[in-house]
């Protein structure tokens, strides 16, 4: 089914971009963005699968809805934690020292 190559490629590119972002970024928010990219790659994959050949429960279409919801919830928690971290140590760099004593 050659016409599905495009969506699969899109998913791969999204995942690749996301992974690259996750791998190189140290800023918590940017890292979140990378994760979301990977997630969206996964969603594209799901939907494409659905398009390629429907499964019993149309899960390829239903699952993304769940995932998006969960991801949204996660981001809420994530931002709260990032905020707390920023308050506690004034930086959202992931590699900031864990304790004040460790700070240079």
């Amino acid at each position: 089914m050659i016409h599905l190559l495009g969506p699969y490629l899109l998913a791969a590119v999204l995942v690749g971009l996301g992974v690259a972002g996750v791998a190189v970024r140290r800023n918590a928010v940017l890292l979140l963005v990378g994760v979301e990219l990977v997630l969206s790659g996964g969603l594209v994959l799901l939907v494409t699968t659905q398009a390629a050949g429907a499964d019993r429960w149309a899960a390829g279409s239903v699952l993304p809805l769940f995932v998006v919801t969960v991801a949204a919830a996660e981001v809420v928690v994530a931002l709260a934690v990032v905020l707390a971290a920023f308050r506690a140590r004034g930086s959202i760099d992931l590699d900031a020292p864990a304790t004040a004593q460790d700070a240079p």
Partner: peptide
């Protein structure tokens, strides 16, 4: 501060694994 540091680590790892 240490707890938030730990939470941040946990968070990003959990997000990645999700």
């Amino acid at each position: 501060r240490p707890a938030t540091h730990g939470a941040l680590g946990l968070l990003v790892t959990s997000l990645a694994s999700f």
